[in-house]
Amino acid sequence: MTDKPDVPRDATVSDTVERIRAARFDDIDRGLVLELMSLHAAHTAPENLGRQIDDAIMAQIKGRG
């Protein structure tokens, strides 16, 4: 097991992803990350999952001009 003492151990899934995004992936929108996570929050994948993800990615690209 890896041991990273600087990692907060009580962080939620969202907190963890956001911390990584902010530190190493700030070119990726927070909203896009949350969108992807929300699409996987249900126990069964929504219909047209791939299409919804592609649309969300395109929205980020267009949003950034």
Binding site: V7, R24, F25, I28, I57
Partner: peptide
């Protein structure tokens, strides 16, 4: 290309998140 790059970055982000969250 932008779509490919964002998707690639997203993959890297979630890959890192899986490892780190599993560790936590």
């Amino acid at each position: 290309r932008a779509r490919r790059d964002v998707a690639g970055r997203l993959y890297e982000l979630f890959d890192a998140a899986v490892d780190e969250y599993r560790d936590q």
